[in-house]
Amino acid sequence: MSHRMRQPDKKLSQRLLGSVPYSDRLPAGRLLPSLGIIPGDVRSLRELHLVLTPDVRSLPGVDLTALADWVGRVMGDRTLAHGIRTITRESRSYVEGCMKVYDLVGYRLDQAREVAGQEVLT
């Protein structure tokens, strides 16, 4: 999938590769039949990417609108936040939105890793 996002600068890249304090966490659950909704939260983009990783037995539980706000406000990445909002608006379903956001976040992480001189994983 191609994404058009300007590469983050070094400072933003460091932030995107790091974790935010507990007080800035974003709630994120998982629907796992027949266990129900498993509570949790995310504090980093890398963790968010794992939460959104497609899985045949469960679904991620993330409020995509709140996520976009969180990415903009807490992570300080307005470009990514805009991308998430666009996906959320245009997706035909919640699951489609999650999968597209998963791709987008993975792409953004790779951009940040590249800037930071780290190995690109996805």
Binding site: R30, L35, I38, G40, D41, R46, E47, L50, T53, L121
Partner: peptide, 22 residues
């Protein structure tokens, strides 16, 4: 199965670098 394989998930992903490690 079920709960035992899920209890640490919300925490393991905070340190796991990849889905496989998670």
């Amino acid at each position: 199965a079920c709960q035992e394989t899920a209890w640490y998930g919300p925490f393991a992903r905070k340190v796991a670098k990849t889905a496989a490690e998670n």
